[in-house]
Computed example of a mutant assay.
Amino acid sequence: MENIHHKHVEVRGLKLHVAEIGSGPKVVVFLHGFPEIWYTWRHQMVAVANNGYRAIAFDHRGYGLSEQPAEPEKATFKDLIDDVVALLDSLGINKVIFCNLFSTS
């Protein structure tokens, strides 16, 4: 997508691929399912950015363009949580709205 910017951010010893669009103090973080990648959320990211939010999606460790940990078989759900917290800290974000592929509404 034309306005989505990409970068790698070092998080807990791994380079994670981050896709981002929009600006402002309100942030929405999109977490992809398994085995998906950030691209799952591209249309939603543009939509929330067009409504004044900063939209961020990243490839979880070992997925897409993010680095794989040395022992991927030992990864846990807590690793994902810790990665999200560390990523937000590195981006200077302290409050977000989370969206996930399996939300129920």
Rank of each mutant, 00 (worst) to 15 (best):
7 K>F: 12
5 H>D: 15
20 E>C: 06
34 F>Y: 13
21 I>S: 08
32 H>C: 02
24 G>P: 07
20 E>S: 08
37 I>D: 01
41 W>Q: 04
39 Y>S: 00
31 L>H: 06
23 S>T: 13
13 G>R: 11
21 I>D: 09
29 V>L: 14
4 I>E: 09
11 V>R: 05
29 V>S: 01
25 P>Q: 07
10 E>V: 14
38 W>I: 00
30 F>E: 04
22 G>N: 13
35 P>H: 08
18 V>E: 06
6 H>F: 13
26 K>A: 07
22 G>W: 12
10 E>Q: 13
29 V>A: 07
17 H>P: 09
20 E>A: 07
36 E>D: 14
34 F>E: 09
10 E>C: 10
18 V>S: 01
23 S>L: 06
21 I>C: 12
30 F>L: 09
21 I>E: 14
10 E>A: 14
32 H>Y: 01
7 K>R: 15
27 V>A: 02
20 E>Y: 04
22 G>D: 12
37 I>N: 05
17 H>Q: 05
36 E>N: 08
6 H>P: 02
33 G>R: 07
11 V>S: 06
15 K>Y: 12
12 R>G: 12
40 T>Y: 03
8 H>M: 13
29 V>N: 04
27 V>D: 00
18 V>F: 05
20 E>L: 09
36 E>L: 09
7 K>I: 06
20 E>G: 03
30 F>Y: 08
22 G>M: 13
42 R>I: 02
40 T>C: 02
21 I>P: 04
20 E>V: 04
10 E>L: 14
22 G>S: 14
25 P>A: 10
33 G>P: 10
17 H>G: 03
20 E>D: 03
39 Y>G: 00
19 A>D: 08
16 L>S: 01
5 H>M: 15
13 G>C: 12
31 L>K: 02
35 P>R: 12
30 F>W: 09
4 I>R: 09
31 L>S: 06
7 K>D: 12
30 F>A: 07
13 G>E: 14
6 H>I: 05
36 E>W: 04
3 N>R: 14
35 P>Q: 10
25 P>E: 12
18 V>W: 04
26 K>R: 12
41 W>E: 07
31 L>Q: 04
34 F>L: 15
12 R>P: 13
14 L>F: 08
5 H>Y: 14
28 V>A: 08
16 L>K: 03
32 H>P: 05
3 N>E: 15
7 K>V: 09
17 H>Y: 11
21 I>G: 05
19 A>H: 09
31 L>V: 03
3 N>L: 14
3 N>K: 15
28 V>S: 01
30 F>S: 10
27 V>L: 02
5 H>R: 15
32 H>F: 01
20 E>I: 03
14 L>E: 08
41 W>R: 07
10 E>K: 15
28 V>Q: 01
24 G>E: 03
13 G>T: 10
20 E>M: 09
19 A>E: 03
